[in-house]
Design a protein around this nucleic acid. Structure first.
Lengths: 233, 233
DNA sequence: TAGTGGTCTAGACCACCGG
DNA sequence: CGGTGGTCTAGACCACTAT
């Protein structure tokens, strides 16, 4: 008789994944219960659980309590991006990092900023514009708005010395993050600051963070031409 | 005496995370072993394991066998992107999807394509250029190269009828994916195809996939102005 | 080679949600 | 309300790697 081999959750995942790819399970189909899969595949239920968890994270299946597992009808490709602190990114390229404060002001946020937070805030906010340099050349221009009610210490910061970006990352945890990427042409002013031709295509990165539902900060980063975001693994 | 409450791995994670944020554990510090944390926090080791796994996935800590766990010295913000199949994306916006083949040819790949695969391939490849439409307006222009040795069926496909993009997603699994995003100005030809002004800023998406080390396909997608990539949660 | 994280198992209970 | 996925526990063994 055959002996059951010990199987890793990756093997179990691949076996199930294989049956999806082979058309054995088709998009929209309901999959067997974890317990039944476990028995059929000859492993513990928690191993199936782990495998299905991964398939769910990867976007191949949807899971619902009581509803069971289904093959996701619309395939997606999922990518993970690491956005390091600007200084780290510059240094990892072997360049020398530099930081230059461009402006600091306190005032009412424009509509675009309020929209980023998904609400209307009539209160004044702290705005900081700064330039990250790589070997003394412009690398990223960031335009940041900070909500003083959530981050009162920010008003006291000497932003000409302290890198607000890194200060926030180190001291202000968030539990909600909205991030978006798009392309935009450089206007005259931005082109001048970044040292590029007006109309150059810039990759824009927008980040907005909240903690316990309270808005922390939103930042629009204009990256210099040639900048690329690369997915992990 | 006090009774130990049953704790979820999220609670355990937050307690450890809290000690990192509070400066109790500083960047670069070595954390206690899982077993010690479990005892200190009053839960099973596997619960700590799950919590640390999440902190590792989120980029807060680094884990190494024998080496133990350390607070990651360089903070990163991590974002997950879902890139749906073009048709799904168009339909989810309430628009009508359309597909138009622009060209199909077999020939030697340019250096840029070989570079994407990280190797030199002198063999001929299948190139397919196609346009995805939203309400009859250009949405995404894709320029794809397929390796016939890995995907022999592709040569037989009637690409004027079949959406190669979706065909590959459904039938060709991959185990390695490289994805990158950048901004680029539209040249005259692309501007014409996409129906935009020459010089417009376009968000570019590059995807390259492998299976068992063998290259499958690489595609450069030029998205129409206004296109945004938005992170999940 | 020994220490540490990674995983598997078996069993139990919980939480959500469809019928 | 009952079925299904989600999680916790305790214990054992494995795999990687720092020392």
């Amino acid at each position: 008789m055959s002996r059951e081999q010990r199987q890793s959750w990756q093997e179990i995942r691949d076996r199930i994944h294989g049956r999806i790819l082979s058309g054995d399970f088709r998009p929209g189909d309901k999959l067997p219960r974890d317990a039944d899969l476990a028995e059929a595949l000859g492993c513990a239920r928690s191993t199936v659980q782990r495998a299905m968890q991964d398939l769910s994270d990867s976007g191949f299946v949807e899971r619902r309590r009581k509803g069971g597992s289904r093959v996701r009808p619309d395939p997606v490709t999922r990518a993970t991006l690491d956005i390091p602190v600007a200084r780290k990114e510059v240094e990892s390229r072997g360049s020398t990092y530099g930081y230059r404060l461009i402006s600091r002001e306190v005032g009412p946020p424009p509509h675009a900023v309020q929209a980023a937070f998904g609400a209307t805030f009539s209160q004044a906010m702290l705005r900081v514009q700064a330039l990250h340099l790589a070997d003394a050349r412009p690398f990223i221009l960031e335009d940041r708005w900070i909500v003083p009610e959530t981050v009162p210490e920010a008003l006291e910061l000497d932003v000409s010395e302290v890198n607000v970006n890194e200060w926030l990352v180190k001291h202000k945890p968030y539990d909600k993050l909205d991030m978006r990427f798009y392309a935009e042409q450089a206007g005259a002013e931005r082109a001048d600051i970044l040292g590029v031709d007006p109309g150059a295509a810039l990759l824009m990165i927008e980040r907005t963070t909240w903690i316990d539902g309270a808005p922390i900060t939103t930042v629009r980063s204009s990256t210099a031409p040639g900048y690329q975001l690369v997915s992990q693994s």
